[in-house]
Design a protein around this nucleic acid. Structure first.
Lengths: 191, 191
DNA sequence: ATGCTCGCTCAACAGCTGTAGAGTCAAATT
DNA sequence: AATTTGACTCTACAGCTGTTGAGCGAGCAT
């Protein structure tokens, strides 16, 4: 069932398996901690094939985290940061890969900064307070911290056992408060 | 002025220079991104001397971030997380080194988790709400996110230009709110 | 059936890594 | 003054890294 015999199809399937393996490895060990050989092995493939497909390890990383990719609306862009529609579920592989490397890989740091800056700007635009930008930044950075603490550091108090609903009922009004109360209703589910 | 001629003194001075170089390098590039040779060069010393002094690269890291070190009261323990007395100044070298590696180096991840778990527990103890632990965790993770966003990602809205006081006046009441209002007065500057 | 195409593996490389051991030379001890 | 100590550097090595180029063998066109 899993053997498309067309040549092009098999090649595409290989590329896909490699990409998924890369996302998983990057998500677990970061850019520097991930080895081309490890990606290849996980994909059941020769290391050099990885290079032949994606050029360079850092090219592969850029693709794996969809680095310069414009926002489709619910890609990386849409997940971690549906700001007031905070998702507490496990982040998708690209997001994991990006967040995992954001403190050590310059390209990931830059991408994360750009992305968060944009989110802050969007969020600030919904309010007309003069400290709107600062408040938006606090909101966004809180969500970042929550994501890191829950899904990467796995703090006890935020771990899997805790139902997402409980977290949300506490979190949501608190985050809305961060924006200044009068902005609370202006911000719909689509931020 | 900077040449103590005693043998033991010179050795101690070397060790200190190496340690500081290590903290700086770890703080900039993380555990994996830092090379023993780079530390040595920064300290103006031969690479093997680094090993002779501190054993292994990962031993050096543990010492540089004061890994198992009991809390002196305002070490790593005291800085990043004076929870309601949030410091917005540049974190000290050990803290930078620890935070920088927390997503990629397992030992740093574990240390960070332990440390944050303890902080959450302490903070939760100050309240008697039944969701106290959850609220404490949200507070702590927010501060983590703020630190990362400001000092590591350098978000525009949180960058150096913004006076710390302004951030604090917005941040502090918001964080106290996270703990549930009635806990607000219970928590003094010493958490 | 034959020749070409091309997705893939094999083998190899140069560079960098952490780390060990021998050697060196000034300070301490006698 | 002669000897010992020990802080330091030099040299080296084995392992792993990303990446390349040659070769193989199965799918394709003829």
């Amino acid at each position: 069932m899993s053997e498309p015999t067309s040549r092009a199809a098999r090649r595409a399937a290989s590329a896909q398996r490699i990409l998924e393996a890369a996302q998983a490895e990057f998500g677990e060990h970061g850019l520097e901690g991930t080895t081309v050989r490890a990606v290849a092995q996980r994909a059941g493939v020769d290391p050099s094939l990885v290079i032949q497909h994606y050029g360079t390890k850092s090219d592969l990383f850029a693709i794996a985290v969809r680095l310069p990719g414009e926002s489709t609306g619910d890609d990386v862009t849409g997940h971690l940061f549906d700001v007031l529609d905070v998702r507490l579920s496990e982040p998708p592989p690209e997001t994991r890969a990006l967040v995992r490397s954001m403190l050590t890989a310059p390209e990931a740091t830059g991408a994360m900064r750009d992305f968060l800056n944009e989110r802050v700007a969007n969020l600030a635009r919904a309010s007309d307070r003069d400290d709107a930008e600062l408040r938006a930044a606090l909101t966004v950075s809180s969500i970042l911290g929550l994501t890191v603490a829950r899904h990467f550091l796995k703090l006890d108090a935020l771990s899997g056992e805790i139902p997402a609903e409980q977290v949300e009922t506490v979190l949501r009004p608190w985050l809305t408060a961060a924006l200044g109360d009068e902005a609370a209703e202006d911000v719909g589910p689509e931020v």
